[in-house]
Design a protein around this nucleic acid. Structure first.
Length: 332
DNA sequence: GCGACAG
DNA sequence: ATCTTGTCGC
């Protein structure tokens, strides 16, 4: 009865999934249940978790699930667990949780067994909460199954209940001024399903924050903003970076053009230099350099330039004069 | 046939 | 979700 990780689930499966979502939905706790959520400075909040799943390009059944815990408000990683997993369900919009959530629950359980003292007081989840076709996105699903406060943070607007990424929506985005600015996402039903959040001053694309479990929308938005050193909140960003890094290091990307080129370069070059140091025209690369400034951040910002609008200012022709706020820092 | 489509 | 180019600045 094991589902293939690729291919569309049958209509019967989708009906079962819908019933499961409806059943679990009754267990969502709305509103703030923790003392720190009521405090203007989040006093008492010490640990914020983030989860993410990264995928193997050529393989539709393997992925890496990561859970990280960060100190608050410092946002330093104090726990990480990355695990290679075998996917059992395909991605279907509206049913993301059935693909990812089993592994996320397992990561939380492992943490509670090994390091219960590091259990996060709130979890930021890549995806939506109640901003969902049936009001039960992955952040609600994970929240109910773990009973941890959860916040849904999506990078794209899920167009449900009349919400549309149309010109009016884009106007509202452009009207956002400073980091922390928001506008409500009101469905046809008249309910506010979530908030669009400008996560920092120079971010073009907003985040779409919605409630998962045991937290109010206002607190969810304010906390998400407090977690943003760059566009993506640090807990999710660290989980993303670490899960991708795990895949890159263990599986590489066999077969990809870039990997093939990298491999042939690697084979032609001697791995050790027994005598003369680095070969003929080999300037000593970086000898005593400290950790170079977040290389990962640059990758994220390029991704934004891809799925975002081409951002007409992305030229380098305006040399010399001014360096206002480079458009490519959007994801930093 | 066409548009939509969290991750 | 995944891949991808090249460039500036410290």
């Amino acid at each position: 009865m094991a589902l293939k990780a690729a291919g569309r689930p049958s209509a019967e499966t989708l009906l079962l999934w819908e019933r499961e979502q409806a059943r679990l939905r009754t267990r969502v706790l709305h509103g703030d249940t923790e003392a720190w959520q009521r405090d203007a400075a989040f006093s008492g909040l010490r640990r914020v978790g983030g989860v993410d799943v990264s995928f193997v390009r050529g393989d539709d059944s393997r992925a890496c699930a990561s859970l990280v815990v960060l100190s608050f408000p410092e946002l330093q990683v104090v726990y990480e667990d990355s695990h290679l997993v075998r996917l059992k369900a395909p991605y279907v919009s509206g049913f993301l949780a059935f693909r990812e959530v089993p592994f996320l629950v397992e990561l939380v359980q492992r943490l509670q067994e090994k390091e219960p003292g590091l259990t996060p007081q709130v979890l930021l989840v890549d995806g939506n909460g109640v901003l969902h076709q049936r009001g039960f996105g992955v952040a609600c699903h994970l929240g109910v199954l773990t009973d941890l406060p959860c916040i849904g943070v999506a990078k794209k607007l899920l167009q449900v209940d009349g919400l549309e990424n149309n010109s009016l929506h884009k106007e509202k985005i452009m009207s956002l001024q400073a980091g922390g600015d928001t506008f409500p996402l009101m469905g046809n039903s008249g309910t506010v399903l979530g908030m669009a959040l400008k996560s920092h001053d120079h971010s073009t694309k907003p985040l779409y924050v919605s409630v998962g479990h045991r937290i109010s929308l206002e607190v969810a938005v304010r906390l998400t903003h407090h977690c943003c050193r760059f566009r993506i909140p640090e807990p999710i960003r660290q989980a993303d970076i670490r899960s991708r890094e795990y895949i890159r290091r263990t599986l590489g990307t066999p077969g990809s053009p870039a990997q093939m080129r990298a491999r042939s370069r690697e084979e032609q070059r001697p791995k050790a230099y027994p005598k003369g140091g680095p070969g003929p025209a080999g300037p000593p690369k970086d000898s005593g350099r400290g950790p170079s400034p977040d290389l990962e951040d640059l990758q994220l910002c390029f991704q934004e330039q891809q799925d975002g609008q081409p951002e007409g200012t992305g030229h380098h022709e305006d040399s010399g004069l001014r360096t206002p706020s480079p458009p490519w820092e959007d994801d930093l």
